[in-house]
Design a protein around this nucleic acid. Structure first.
Lengths: 217, 217
DNA sequence: CCGAGCATCAACCTTTCGGCCGATAGGCCC
DNA sequence: GGGCCTATCGGCCGAAAGGTTGATGCTCGG
Protein backbone atom coordinates (compact mmCIF):
# COMPACT_ATOMS: atom_id res chain seq x y z
CA UNK A 1 0.00 0.00 0.00
CA UNK A 2 2.21 2.72 -1.28
CA UNK A 3 -0.75 5.13 -1.51
CA UNK A 4 0.31 6.43 -4.89
CA UNK A 5 -1.94 9.43 -4.65
CA UNK A 6 0.95 11.64 -5.59
CA UNK A 7 3.65 10.01 -7.65
CA UNK A 8 6.62 12.19 -8.31
CA UNK A 9 8.86 10.43 -10.78
CA UNK A 10 10.64 13.71 -11.15
CA UNK A 11 11.50 13.64 -7.44
CA UNK A 12 13.06 10.30 -6.71
CA UNK A 13 13.68 9.20 -3.14
CA UNK A 14 17.23 10.06 -2.21
CA UNK A 15 18.99 7.20 -0.44
CA UNK A 16 22.32 6.84 1.34
CA UNK A 17 23.68 3.30 1.76
CA UNK A 18 25.83 2.39 4.76
CA UNK A 19 27.39 -1.06 4.86
CA UNK A 20 30.83 -2.37 5.61
CA UNK A 21 30.57 -5.11 3.00
CA UNK A 22 31.58 -3.89 -0.44
CA UNK A 23 29.59 -6.69 -2.00
CA UNK A 24 26.40 -5.72 -0.23
CA UNK A 25 26.94 -2.03 -0.88
CA UNK A 26 27.42 -2.65 -4.54
CA UNK A 27 24.50 -5.03 -4.77
CA UNK A 28 22.16 -2.70 -2.96
CA UNK A 29 23.25 0.14 -5.17
CA UNK A 30 22.64 -1.87 -8.31
CA UNK A 31 19.26 -3.09 -7.15
CA UNK A 32 18.10 0.34 -6.13
CA UNK A 33 19.42 1.93 -9.29
CA UNK A 34 16.98 -0.28 -11.19
CA UNK A 35 14.13 1.55 -9.50
CA UNK A 36 13.36 4.87 -11.16
CA UNK A 37 11.71 6.18 -8.00
CA UNK A 38 14.96 5.81 -6.06
CA UNK A 39 18.23 7.61 -6.41
CA UNK A 40 21.33 6.51 -4.49
CA UNK A 41 23.11 9.69 -3.52
CA UNK A 42 25.81 8.29 -1.26
CA UNK A 43 27.60 5.20 -0.02
CA UNK A 44 29.57 4.75 3.17
CA UNK A 45 31.49 1.80 4.53
CA UNK A 46 31.33 2.91 8.16
CA UNK A 47 29.25 4.92 10.57
CA UNK A 48 31.67 7.74 11.17
CA UNK A 49 31.23 9.63 7.97
CA UNK A 50 27.50 9.19 7.69
CA UNK A 51 26.53 12.47 9.33
CA UNK A 52 28.73 14.46 6.99
CA UNK A 53 27.37 12.57 4.06
CA UNK A 54 23.79 13.21 5.14
CA UNK A 55 24.49 16.91 5.39
CA UNK A 56 26.13 16.96 1.99
CA UNK A 57 23.58 14.90 0.12
CA UNK A 58 20.28 15.60 1.94
CA UNK A 59 18.86 12.10 1.57
CA UNK A 60 15.32 11.10 2.38
CA UNK A 61 16.34 7.69 3.67
CA UNK A 62 19.51 6.26 5.18
CA UNK A 63 19.79 2.52 4.64
CA UNK A 64 22.31 1.14 7.13
CA UNK A 65 23.62 -2.25 8.10
CA UNK A 66 23.09 -3.04 11.76
CA UNK A 67 26.58 -4.43 12.17
CA UNK A 68 29.30 -2.24 10.86
CA UNK A 69 32.97 -2.59 11.43
CA UNK A 70 34.76 -0.70 14.19
CA UNK A 71 33.50 2.81 14.74
CA UNK A 72 29.85 2.45 15.56
CA UNK A 73 26.97 0.22 14.55
CA UNK A 74 23.58 0.80 12.99
CA UNK A 75 22.18 1.96 16.32
CA UNK A 76 24.77 4.71 16.54
CA UNK A 77 24.04 5.71 12.97
CA UNK A 78 20.34 5.89 13.77
CA UNK A 79 20.89 8.04 16.84
CA UNK A 80 23.25 10.39 15.05
CA UNK A 81 21.11 10.84 11.96
CA UNK A 82 17.78 11.09 13.76
CA UNK A 83 19.24 13.40 16.35
CA UNK A 84 20.57 15.89 13.85
CA UNK A 85 18.01 15.38 11.10
CA UNK A 86 14.68 14.09 12.39
CA UNK A 87 13.20 14.34 8.92
CA UNK A 88 15.57 11.71 7.55
CA UNK A 89 14.25 8.17 7.89
CA UNK A 90 16.63 5.40 8.89
CA UNK A 91 16.13 1.85 7.68
CA UNK A 92 18.16 -0.95 9.25
CA UNK A 93 19.49 -3.86 7.22
CA UNK A 94 20.53 -6.96 9.07
CA UNK A 95 21.43 -10.54 8.37
CA UNK A 96 19.57 -12.02 11.32
CA UNK A 97 16.15 -11.41 12.64
CA UNK A 98 17.23 -12.42 16.12
CA UNK A 99 19.23 -9.45 17.15
CA UNK A 100 18.42 -7.51 20.29
CA UNK A 101 20.07 -4.43 18.79
CA UNK A 102 17.12 -4.19 16.44
CA UNK A 103 15.03 -3.14 19.41
CA UNK A 104 17.60 -0.54 20.35
CA UNK A 105 17.63 0.73 16.79
CA UNK A 106 13.86 1.08 16.69
CA UNK A 107 13.95 2.81 20.05
CA UNK A 108 16.60 5.14 18.65
CA UNK A 109 14.17 6.15 15.92
CA UNK A 110 14.72 3.70 13.09
CA UNK A 111 11.73 3.37 10.78
CA UNK A 112 12.16 -0.40 10.68
CA UNK A 113 14.45 -3.04 9.40
CA UNK A 114 15.04 -5.37 6.52
CA UNK A 115 16.64 -8.76 6.24
CA UNK A 116 19.50 -9.05 3.81
CA UNK A 117 17.79 -11.86 2.00
CA UNK A 118 14.78 -9.69 1.27
CA UNK A 119 13.61 -9.55 -2.31
CA UNK A 120 14.39 -6.39 -4.27
CA UNK A 121 10.71 -5.50 -4.39
CA UNK A 122 10.47 -5.71 -0.61
CA UNK A 123 13.48 -3.48 -0.20
CA UNK A 124 12.12 -0.87 -2.56
CA UNK A 125 8.71 -1.01 -0.91
CA UNK A 126 10.27 -0.56 2.51
CA UNK A 127 12.27 2.43 1.35
CA UNK A 128 9.18 4.03 -0.14
CA UNK A 129 7.25 3.43 3.06
CA UNK A 130 10.07 4.79 5.19
CA UNK A 131 10.34 7.88 3.01
CA UNK A 132 6.69 8.56 3.75
CA UNK A 133 7.29 8.31 7.45
CA UNK A 134 5.76 4.87 7.88
CA UNK A 135 7.14 2.16 10.11
CA UNK A 136 8.29 -1.05 8.49
CA UNK A 137 8.10 -4.16 10.63
CA UNK A 138 6.85 -7.51 9.45
CA UNK A 139 4.56 -9.60 11.63
CA UNK A 140 7.29 -12.03 12.58
CA UNK A 141 9.71 -9.22 13.19
CA UNK A 142 7.24 -7.32 15.33
CA UNK A 143 6.65 -10.43 17.38
CA UNK A 144 10.33 -10.68 18.09
CA UNK A 145 10.51 -7.06 19.09
CA UNK A 146 7.63 -7.65 21.46
CA UNK A 147 9.29 -10.77 22.82
CA UNK A 148 12.43 -8.86 23.52
CA UNK A 149 10.56 -5.97 25.03
CA UNK A 150 8.85 -8.46 27.30
CA UNK A 151 12.24 -9.23 28.72
CA UNK A 152 12.99 -5.55 28.36
CA UNK A 153 10.56 -5.02 31.22
CA UNK A 154 13.23 -6.64 33.35
CA UNK A 155 16.40 -6.20 31.43
CA UNK A 156 19.41 -7.96 32.91
CA UNK A 157 21.82 -5.50 34.44
CA UNK A 158 25.24 -4.91 32.97
CA UNK A 159 26.88 -6.84 35.76
CA UNK A 160 24.55 -9.75 35.23
CA UNK A 161 25.44 -9.76 31.57
CA UNK A 162 29.12 -9.82 32.54
CA UNK A 163 28.44 -13.02 34.41
CA UNK A 164 26.27 -14.39 31.63
CA UNK A 165 28.92 -13.85 29.00
CA UNK A 166 31.42 -15.82 31.04
CA UNK A 167 28.86 -18.55 31.59
CA UNK A 168 28.33 -18.70 27.82
CA UNK A 169 32.08 -19.11 27.53
CA UNK A 170 31.85 -22.26 29.58
CA UNK A 171 33.35 -20.94 32.82
CA UNK A 172 32.38 -22.30 36.22
CA UNK A 173 31.03 -20.06 38.97
CA UNK A 174 34.40 -20.21 40.66
CA UNK A 175 36.24 -19.08 37.54
CA UNK A 176 33.73 -16.32 36.97
CA UNK A 177 34.15 -15.14 40.56
CA UNK A 178 37.90 -14.88 40.07
CA UNK A 179 37.59 -13.22 36.70
CA UNK A 180 35.24 -10.54 38.02
CA UNK A 181 36.96 -10.17 41.41
CA UNK A 182 33.82 -11.06 43.35
CA UNK A 183 32.84 -14.03 45.50
CA UNK A 184 31.16 -17.21 44.42
CA UNK A 185 28.09 -16.13 46.36
CA UNK A 186 27.74 -13.00 44.26
CA UNK A 187 28.07 -14.92 41.05
CA UNK A 188 25.31 -17.20 42.23
CA UNK A 189 23.15 -14.24 43.14
CA UNK A 190 23.58 -12.69 39.71
CA UNK A 191 22.86 -16.01 38.06
CA UNK A 192 19.76 -16.48 40.17
CA UNK A 193 18.47 -13.08 39.10
CA UNK A 194 19.24 -13.95 35.50
CA UNK A 195 17.26 -17.16 35.83
CA UNK A 196 14.28 -15.16 37.05
CA UNK A 197 14.52 -12.56 34.32
CA UNK A 198 15.06 -15.04 31.53
CA UNK A 199 12.54 -17.50 32.94
CA UNK A 200 14.94 -20.44 32.96
CA UNK A 201 16.38 -22.64 35.66
CA UNK A 202 19.87 -23.53 34.54
CA UNK A 203 22.97 -21.82 33.26
CA UNK A 204 22.76 -23.55 29.89
CA UNK A 205 19.14 -22.50 29.61
CA UNK A 206 20.09 -18.94 30.40
CA UNK A 207 22.71 -18.98 27.68
CA UNK A 208 20.29 -20.46 25.16
CA UNK A 209 17.59 -17.91 25.92
CA UNK A 210 19.96 -14.97 26.04
CA UNK A 211 21.40 -16.01 22.71
CA UNK A 212 17.94 -16.34 21.22
CA UNK A 213 17.09 -12.85 22.40
CA UNK A 214 20.37 -11.50 21.14
CA UNK A 215 21.50 -10.42 24.59
CA UNK A 216 24.87 -12.06 24.03
CA UNK A 217 26.94 -13.04 21.05
CA UNK B 1 45.85 -27.40 -13.19
CA UNK B 2 45.04 -25.26 -16.17
CA UNK B 3 48.72 -24.51 -16.67
CA UNK B 4 48.34 -20.77 -17.05
CA UNK B 5 51.56 -20.35 -18.97
CA UNK B 6 49.87 -17.84 -21.22
CA UNK B 7 47.58 -15.02 -20.17
CA UNK B 8 44.56 -14.64 -22.34
CA UNK B 9 42.81 -11.33 -21.71
CA UNK B 10 40.64 -12.21 -24.64
CA UNK B 11 39.52 -15.27 -22.73
CA UNK B 12 38.06 -13.99 -19.47
CA UNK B 13 37.43 -16.32 -16.57
CA UNK B 14 33.87 -17.56 -16.79
CA UNK B 15 32.11 -17.41 -13.44
CA UNK B 16 28.77 -18.66 -12.16
CA UNK B 17 27.39 -17.02 -9.01
CA UNK B 18 25.23 -18.98 -6.57
CA UNK B 19 23.66 -17.11 -3.66
CA UNK B 20 20.20 -17.01 -2.20
CA UNK B 21 20.46 -13.29 -1.39
CA UNK B 22 19.48 -11.14 -4.34
CA UNK B 23 21.49 -8.27 -2.90
CA UNK B 24 24.66 -10.30 -2.67
CA UNK B 25 24.14 -11.83 -6.09
CA UNK B 26 23.67 -8.46 -7.64
CA UNK B 27 26.59 -6.93 -5.79
CA UNK B 28 28.93 -9.74 -6.68
CA UNK B 29 27.87 -9.51 -10.27
CA UNK B 30 28.49 -5.79 -10.37
CA UNK B 31 31.86 -6.07 -8.67
CA UNK B 32 33.03 -8.85 -10.93
CA UNK B 33 31.74 -7.11 -14.03
CA UNK B 34 34.18 -4.33 -13.26
CA UNK B 35 37.03 -6.77 -13.80
CA UNK B 36 37.82 -7.25 -17.48
CA UNK B 37 39.44 -10.61 -16.78
CA UNK B 38 36.17 -11.99 -15.42
CA UNK B 39 32.90 -12.69 -17.11
CA UNK B 40 29.80 -13.66 -15.14
CA UNK B 41 28.02 -16.23 -17.25
CA UNK B 42 25.31 -17.28 -14.85
CA UNK B 43 23.50 -16.60 -11.61
CA UNK B 44 21.50 -18.97 -9.44
CA UNK B 45 19.57 -18.44 -6.25
CA UNK B 46 19.71 -22.07 -5.15
CA UNK B 47 21.77 -25.20 -5.45
CA UNK B 48 19.35 -27.26 -7.46
CA UNK B 49 19.80 -25.66 -10.82
CA UNK B 50 23.56 -25.21 -10.59
CA UNK B 51 24.51 -28.40 -12.38
CA UNK B 52 22.32 -27.57 -15.36
CA UNK B 53 23.73 -24.09 -15.42
CA UNK B 54 27.28 -25.36 -15.33
CA UNK B 55 26.58 -27.63 -18.26
CA UNK B 56 24.97 -24.83 -20.21
CA UNK B 57 27.53 -22.13 -19.54
CA UNK B 58 30.80 -24.05 -19.08
CA UNK B 59 32.23 -21.80 -16.39
CA UNK B 60 35.77 -21.93 -15.06
CA UNK B 61 34.73 -21.09 -11.52
CA UNK B 62 31.55 -21.53 -9.51
CA UNK B 63 31.27 -18.99 -6.70
CA UNK B 64 28.73 -20.25 -4.20
CA UNK B 65 27.41 -19.17 -0.84
CA UNK B 66 27.90 -21.76 1.86
CA UNK B 67 24.41 -21.30 3.23
CA UNK B 68 21.71 -21.43 0.66
CA UNK B 69 18.03 -21.72 1.25
CA UNK B 70 16.22 -25.05 1.22
CA UNK B 71 17.49 -27.46 -1.39
CA UNK B 72 21.13 -27.94 -0.62
CA UNK B 73 24.00 -25.87 0.70
CA UNK B 74 27.42 -24.93 -0.63
CA UNK B 75 28.80 -28.33 0.26
CA UNK B 76 26.21 -30.04 -1.91
CA UNK B 77 26.97 -27.65 -4.73
CA UNK B 78 30.65 -28.43 -4.39
CA UNK B 79 30.09 -32.16 -4.48
CA UNK B 80 27.75 -31.98 -7.45
CA UNK B 81 29.92 -29.70 -9.52
CA UNK B 82 33.23 -31.33 -8.72
CA UNK B 83 31.76 -34.77 -9.19
CA UNK B 84 30.44 -34.08 -12.66
CA UNK B 85 33.03 -31.52 -13.76
CA UNK B 86 36.35 -31.90 -11.95
CA UNK B 87 37.85 -29.17 -14.10
CA UNK B 88 35.48 -26.56 -12.70
CA UNK B 89 36.78 -24.87 -9.55
CA UNK B 90 34.39 -24.12 -6.70
CA UNK B 91 34.89 -21.14 -4.43
CA UNK B 92 32.86 -20.87 -1.25
CA UNK B 93 31.54 -17.56 0.03
CA UNK B 94 30.48 -17.34 3.62
CA UNK B 95 29.57 -14.76 6.19
CA UNK B 96 31.42 -16.37 9.07
CA UNK B 97 34.86 -17.80 9.33
CA UNK B 98 33.76 -20.14 12.09
CA UNK B 99 31.74 -22.66 10.22
CA UNK B 100 32.54 -26.35 10.35
CA UNK B 101 30.90 -26.80 6.97
CA UNK B 102 33.86 -25.01 5.46
CA UNK B 103 35.93 -28.06 6.25
CA UNK B 104 33.35 -30.28 4.63
CA UNK B 105 33.34 -28.05 1.58
CA UNK B 106 37.11 -28.19 1.25
CA UNK B 107 37.02 -31.94 1.68
CA UNK B 108 34.39 -32.06 -1.04
CA UNK B 109 36.81 -30.38 -3.39
CA UNK B 110 36.29 -26.65 -2.94
CA UNK B 111 39.28 -24.57 -3.95
CA UNK B 112 38.84 -22.38 -0.87
CA UNK B 113 36.55 -19.84 0.61
CA UNK B 114 35.98 -16.13 0.90
CA UNK B 115 34.37 -14.01 3.56
CA UNK B 116 31.51 -11.82 2.43
CA UNK B 117 33.22 -8.76 3.74
CA UNK B 118 36.24 -9.38 1.54
CA UNK B 119 37.44 -6.51 -0.55
CA UNK B 120 36.69 -6.64 -4.28
CA UNK B 121 40.38 -7.06 -5.07
CA UNK B 122 40.60 -10.07 -2.78
CA UNK B 123 37.60 -11.64 -4.41
CA UNK B 124 38.97 -11.16 -7.89
CA UNK B 125 42.36 -12.46 -6.82
CA UNK B 126 40.78 -15.54 -5.28
CA UNK B 127 38.80 -16.24 -8.43
CA UNK B 128 41.89 -15.94 -10.57
CA UNK B 129 43.79 -18.25 -8.26
CA UNK B 130 40.96 -20.76 -8.22
CA UNK B 131 40.72 -20.67 -12.01
CA UNK B 132 44.38 -21.66 -12.12
CA UNK B 133 43.75 -24.61 -9.86
CA UNK B 134 45.27 -23.05 -6.76
CA UNK B 135 43.85 -23.37 -3.28
CA UNK B 136 42.71 -20.22 -1.55
CA UNK B 137 42.89 -20.23 2.24
CA UNK B 138 44.13 -17.37 4.34
CA UNK B 139 46.43 -17.96 7.29
CA UNK B 140 43.70 -17.38 9.83
CA UNK B 141 41.30 -19.48 7.84
CA UNK B 142 43.76 -22.31 7.47
CA UNK B 143 44.36 -22.26 11.18
CA UNK B 144 40.68 -22.69 11.79
CA UNK B 145 40.49 -25.55 9.35
CA UNK B 146 43.39 -27.17 11.15
CA UNK B 147 41.75 -26.55 14.51
CA UNK B 148 38.61 -28.19 13.33
CA UNK B 149 40.47 -31.07 11.75
CA UNK B 150 42.23 -31.58 15.06
CA UNK B 151 38.86 -32.30 16.55
CA UNK B 152 38.09 -34.11 13.33
CA UNK B 153 40.53 -36.78 14.46
CA UNK B 154 37.89 -37.63 17.02
CA UNK B 155 34.72 -36.26 15.60
CA UNK B 156 31.73 -36.46 17.93
CA UNK B 157 29.32 -39.13 16.80
CA UNK B 158 25.91 -38.20 15.49
CA UNK B 159 24.28 -39.40 18.67
CA UNK B 160 26.64 -37.34 20.77
CA UNK B 161 25.75 -34.31 18.69
CA UNK B 162 22.09 -35.04 19.31
CA UNK B 163 22.80 -34.78 23.00
CA UNK B 164 24.97 -31.73 22.54
CA UNK B 165 22.33 -29.86 20.62
CA UNK B 166 19.85 -30.39 23.41
CA UNK B 167 22.42 -29.30 25.97
CA UNK B 168 22.94 -26.13 23.94
CA UNK B 169 19.21 -25.65 24.13
CA UNK B 170 19.46 -25.56 27.90
CA UNK B 171 17.94 -28.97 28.63
CA UNK B 172 18.93 -30.99 31.66
CA UNK B 173 20.24 -34.53 31.37
CA UNK B 174 16.88 -35.79 32.48
CA UNK B 175 15.03 -33.84 29.80
CA UNK B 176 17.53 -34.97 27.19
CA UNK B 177 17.05 -38.58 28.25
CA UNK B 178 13.31 -38.28 27.80
CA UNK B 179 13.62 -36.44 24.50
CA UNK B 180 15.92 -39.07 23.03
CA UNK B 181 14.19 -42.05 24.67
CA UNK B 182 17.31 -43.16 26.47
CA UNK B 183 18.29 -43.27 30.12
CA UNK B 184 20.01 -40.59 32.15
CA UNK B 185 23.07 -42.80 32.34
CA UNK B 186 23.40 -42.90 28.58
CA UNK B 187 23.11 -39.16 28.33
CA UNK B 188 25.89 -38.85 30.84
CA UNK B 189 28.03 -41.31 28.92
CA UNK B 190 27.61 -39.36 25.70
CA UNK B 191 28.37 -36.13 27.47
CA UNK B 192 31.47 -37.62 29.06
CA UNK B 193 32.74 -38.68 25.65
CA UNK B 194 31.99 -35.21 24.32
CA UNK B 195 33.98 -33.65 27.13
CA UNK B 196 36.94 -35.82 26.18
CA UNK B 197 36.67 -35.05 22.48
CA UNK B 198 36.18 -31.33 22.95
CA UNK B 199 38.70 -31.11 25.76
CA UNK B 200 36.33 -29.46 28.21
CA UNK B 201 34.90 -30.41 31.58
CA UNK B 202 31.43 -28.96 31.67
CA UNK B 203 28.32 -28.84 29.54
CA UNK B 204 28.55 -25.11 29.06
CA UNK B 205 32.17 -25.47 28.04
CA UNK B 206 31.19 -28.15 25.54
CA UNK B 207 28.56 -25.87 24.05
CA UNK B 208 31.00 -22.96 23.85
CA UNK B 209 33.68 -25.04 22.15
CA UNK B 210 31.28 -26.79 19.80
CA UNK B 211 29.85 -23.45 18.79
CA UNK B 212 33.31 -22.05 18.21
CA UNK B 213 34.15 -25.00 15.99
CA UNK B 214 30.86 -24.71 14.17
CA UNK B 215 29.72 -28.16 15.25
CA UNK B 216 26.37 -26.76 16.31
CA UNK B 217 24.31 -23.74 15.44
C1' DC C 1 13.48 10.50 53.49
C1' DC C 2 12.31 6.24 51.91
C1' DG C 3 11.46 2.62 48.72
C1' DA C 4 13.31 0.34 44.61
C1' DG C 5 16.87 -1.59 42.32
C1' DC C 6 21.56 -2.99 42.14
C1' DA C 7 25.96 -5.15 43.79
C1' DT C 8 28.02 -7.38 47.24
C1' DC C 9 28.43 -11.34 50.58
C1' DA C 10 27.19 -15.62 53.85
C1' DA C 11 25.08 -19.96 55.48
C1' DC C 12 22.25 -23.85 54.60
C1' DC C 13 20.10 -27.27 51.92
C1' DT C 14 18.62 -30.09 47.71
C1' DT C 15 19.39 -31.38 43.18
C1' DT C 16 22.13 -32.00 39.40
C1' DC C 17 26.24 -32.78 37.27
C1' DG C 18 30.54 -35.00 36.28
C1' DG C 19 34.11 -38.77 37.24
C1' DC C 20 34.77 -43.41 37.74
C1' DC C 21 33.80 -48.07 38.19
C1' DG C 22 31.48 -51.33 35.73
C1' DA C 23 28.34 -54.11 32.00
C1' DT C 24 25.96 -55.78 27.38
C1' DA C 25 25.25 -55.49 22.62
C1' DG C 26 25.85 -54.42 17.60
C1' DG C 27 28.72 -53.01 13.63
C1' DC C 28 33.06 -52.81 11.09
C1' DC C 29 37.68 -53.86 9.66
C1' DC C 30 41.77 -56.59 9.31
C1' DG D 1 37.79 -64.16 15.75
C1' DG D 2 39.60 -60.23 18.07
C1' DG D 3 39.98 -55.61 18.45
C1' DC D 4 37.79 -50.94 18.09
C1' DC D 5 34.08 -47.83 18.19
C1' DT D 6 29.48 -46.80 19.30
C1' DA D 7 25.12 -47.04 21.87
C1' DT D 8 22.97 -48.49 25.63
C1' DC D 9 22.48 -48.99 30.81
C1' DG D 10 23.53 -49.06 36.23
C1' DG D 11 25.60 -47.49 40.69
C1' DC D 12 28.48 -44.81 43.69
C1' DC D 13 30.44 -40.57 45.17
C1' DG D 14 32.33 -35.96 45.50
C1' DA D 15 31.83 -31.51 43.50
C1' DA D 16 29.28 -28.09 41.36
C1' DA D 17 25.15 -25.88 40.64
C1' DG D 18 20.75 -24.08 42.07
C1' DG D 19 17.09 -22.44 45.80
C1' DT D 20 16.25 -20.01 49.98
C1' DT D 21 16.88 -16.64 53.43
C1' DG D 22 18.99 -12.78 55.14
C1' DA D 23 22.19 -9.07 55.40
C1' DT D 24 24.91 -4.53 54.03
C1' DG D 25 25.78 -0.39 51.35
C1' DC D 26 25.05 2.29 47.27
C1' DT D 27 22.35 5.22 44.04
C1' DC D 28 18.40 7.17 42.11
C1' DG D 29 13.86 9.21 41.88
C1' DG D 30 9.46 10.54 43.94
Amino acid sequence: MTTPTANHPQEPIRVVIVDDHPVVRSGMHTLLAASPCIEVVGESSNGDEVLTMVENTSPDVVLTDLRLGPGGDGVDVTKAVRGAHPDVAVLIITTFDHDADIVRAVEAGAAGYLLKDALPDEIVAAIRAAAQGETVLSAEQSQRVIDTLRVGGRPPSERELDVLRLVADGRSNDEIAKALFISRATVKTHLGHLFDKLDVDSRTGAVATARRLGLID
